[in-house]
């Protein structure tokens, strides 16, 4: 199979280029894209990419495969390969450090901006803070985010304003804390999101929903935040 990989080594290359590598795919097995990258690296050890858990829970290997963002470790070749060719590029919209490795600091900064931690000023009880199963259910579909950045780097609004627009991933987490019955900072959190960029740059394009490898729905979470902002101001 022909694998075309985005290559860029800042010490050697003036500009990035696509390198075509022929890879032998073992018969009878539907490899994941990450397996293919391992095969490529066995041939050419200089190819750089991130990977860790290889089972879709750590979020290291978010890549753009044949035009669509996803996790290499849980994307089978049968899902992405078109006409016998696999094109692998880094996640779009972030600066490339080398080959398939992008600089994610902008992404993490937006995550940090929404204060991604539980805030509760009341004294902690001797046991856990109680929460009903119904209250807990509100966190389903939110806490599962693995920070792989597939969504935010598929979002045109994030491409244009990565410094100002929190992006789908960060907003999903913002809502995760807004929705948590144990968190008491709802008003402060909402006040922090009420500018023209942080939330309202979402144009409902829904690329985020389309690519999320965990099947989460940031657009819906953003809708909930807008609803809360509306309720608070009217």
């Amino acid at each position: 199979m022909l694998v075309s990989i985005y290559r860029y080594n800042p010490e050697k290359d003036q500009v990035p280029y696509m390198e075509d590598i022929e890879v032998e795919i073992p018969e009878g097995r539907d490899l994941m894209v990450l397996d293919v990258l391992h095969l490529v690296k066995a041939k050419d050890s200089s190819v750089a990419y991130r990977r860790s858990c290889r089972e879709g829970v750590c979020g290291s290997d978010g890549l753009n495969m044949n035009g669509k963002n996803g996790l290499a470790c849980i994307t089978p070749l049968s899902d992405v390969v078109k006409k016998g060719k696999l094109v692998i590029r880094p996640l779009p919209g972030l600066p490339v450090i080398r080959d398939l490795v992008v600089d994610m600091s902008m992404f993490y900064k937006q995550y940090e901006k929404i204060k991604p931690f539980l805030i509760n000023d009341t004294p902690a009880p001797a046991i856990e803070r109680l929460q009903t199963p119904e209250e807990r259910e509100k966190l389903d579909g939110l806490y599962e985010c693995i920070l792989c950045a597939c969504c935010s780097t598929a979002c045109p609004s994030f491409w244009w304003n990565p410094d100002k627009f929190v992006g789908p991933s960060g907003l999903l987490q913002a809502y995760r804390f807004l929705a948590d019955s144990r968190d008491t900072a709802t008003q402060e959190r909402l006040a922090d999101l009420d500018d023209p960029f942080s939330v309202f740059r979402c144009r409902g394009i829904m690329n985020c929903v389309n690519v999320c490898p965990k099947g989460l729905n940031p657009t819906r979470a953003i809708g909930h935040i807008r609803g809360m902002l509306l309720q608070r101001s009217t």
């Binding site: 931690f117 539980l118 509760n120 902690a124 001797a126 046991i127 856990e128 803070r129 109680l130 929460q131 009903t132 199963p133 209250e135 807990r136 966190l139 806490y143 804390f177 948590d180 144990r182 968190d183």
Partner: peptide
């Protein structure tokens, strides 16, 4: 252990819950 686990809850860990609201 229990103290360490309760600290995790206070830190925000979204444990599944019982009808009584406990972990």
């Amino acid at each position: 252990g229990p103290q360490a686990v309760f600290e995790l809850d206070h830190m925000g860990l979204p444990f599944s819950r019982t009808e009584e609201g406990r972990i």
